[in-house]
Design a protein around this nucleic acid. Structure first.
Lengths: 248, 248
DNA sequence: CGCGCCATTGACTCTGGTCAACGCTAGTGG
DNA sequence: CCACTAGCGTTGACCAGAGTCAATGGCGCG
């Protein structure tokens, strides 16, 4: 079942202010997220469609197969997206960071499950209302399509990574990619926060927790990274990239 | 480099007629493809945007990273979409069948490479013209987005398959899924054509050619399939589905 | 007929999985 | 204040599923 933390709705949950609801005008990830496609004059109306919701770590936002009542825009925190096989095997298909959108498909039902890895802040939209709004705003529709296309591209890269790369290459690529994503949202690309567990990383890279752990140790020995509380520090980003053996 | 077979353009290559160009009105896969979103009165204008092109087996339509000059609608034949790593490892990310669209992302450059597995017929559009047309036809844009979402969903299923399933499960799922796709486009779901080589199947399922071959043999011994010229015949579709261990 | 390509099969190897022990840290409660 | 526990991560020993390497077979084609 899908358990959505109700949060404290529509009061006191702006990213930066204390007593107002989220204000798009001051949103730190607006330009990075789908909202960046909206003209300032559309923003107010769009804003009224959403509610800002706070979600505690480990809480499930939605589950694969559930009726897709809402779509979400992540503004803070990390969300894991995954699929489960009936016998309990899990494949994490992605981690959503601030600026990422959940429910791109606009389908009647969710195609994956999602739960909060950290405490998370999202802008939550009623899906049907969101879709109606899209119909009137082709630029937003176009932006959403760009996001979906980007996700498709990431998914295909991940297929390549999982299918055709060694454990070491997968872990190196994971850290390198995460570093780049953090940089794009204005965080350090060197001190990489790893809020997700080793098990999460394993299920993302299609490895076991033991292999992930051993591979981290190997990267430490090779002086490519240092393990620090809450994450890793990249010592040799280039070396990591070489090890990943992806593209160019 | 991208080698696009010029084909015999704009003459004599309709799916069903001999002397006219492709006519959408008589296209067998129109309802299944993005064109199904168009009102009959838009169809004529849309049709003028495209050229019907015939492409021989093994010819490359486009290569990852190339400037995306065109987008394509497959009307006949099978196309493989893939990524290569610099050291020659290949991951096929999908097989496009009639009704499928190539270039969903509408990006400046192609995100994957594509080549014809069989002789292929496509409706070929200049990308920029196609995008302009989209801007005027929100329903088509919406349809394209649905196609992209569907592809994303398939890519994630494939991540799960490659990452968390055994060789036997992967091959069983491959045959079962192909059977369902063939049925949807009105072909037999029992006599499954396998125009792609064992190497292609291996690169799609992230296995080796030897493992694919051995697994086929195992399925034959288990009386789930029979290998016939050009493909396989499913003897026990349910058994295959059970073996695949996907979803429900 | 002989060559080349693809698929199949066998023998052996190896990467990553499994199983198990241990350590570290945070939280709990006497 | 510290003993106890639970959860997570690390490490080691061993195992197995799929990969590698190699031989063989079938088929189409010049």
């Amino acid at each position: 079942m899908s358990v959505l933390m109700p949060g404290l709705i529509h009061a006191g949950h702006d990213c930066t202010h204390g007593k107002m609801d989220h204000v798009c005008a001051t949103c730190q990830v607006r330009e990075l997220s789908i909202c960046g496609a909206l003209e300032p004059e559309s923003l107010a109306a769009f804003e009224r469609l959403s509610r800002t919701v706070e979600i505690d770590a480990k809480i499930t936002l939605f589950t694969e197969g559930d009726r897709a009542s809402h779509v979400f825009n992540v503004t803070r925190g990390v969300v894991r997206l995954y699929k489960m096989s009936p016998d309990g095997r899990r494949q994490i298909v992605g981690f959503a960071l601030p600026g990422d959108f959940l429910g791109l498909a606009l389908h009647e039902s969710y195609g994956v499950s999602a739960d909060a890895v950290t405490h998370v802040t999202v802008c939550k939209f009623v899906r049907t209302a969101f879709v109606s709004y899209l119909d009137e705003h082709p630029r937003l529709m176009r932006r959403l399509h760009e996001f979906a296309s980007h996700e498709l591209s990431l998914a295909r890269d991940q297929m390549m990574l999982i299918g055709r790369h060694t454990a070491e290459e997968r872990v190196a690529a994971f850290l390198f990619n995460l570093s780049e994503r953090y940089q794009r949202i204005g965080e350090s690309g060197v001190h990489i926060q790893l809020p997700m567990s080793r098990q999460d990383i394993a299920d993302f890279l299609a490895l076991t927790i033991e292999t992930v752990s051993r591979t981290f140790s190997k990267l430490v020995k090779a002086k490519l990274i240092v393990i620090v509380p809450e994450g890793v520090r990249l010592l040799d980003s280039d070396g990591l990239h070489k090890l990943a053996r992806v593209d160019v």
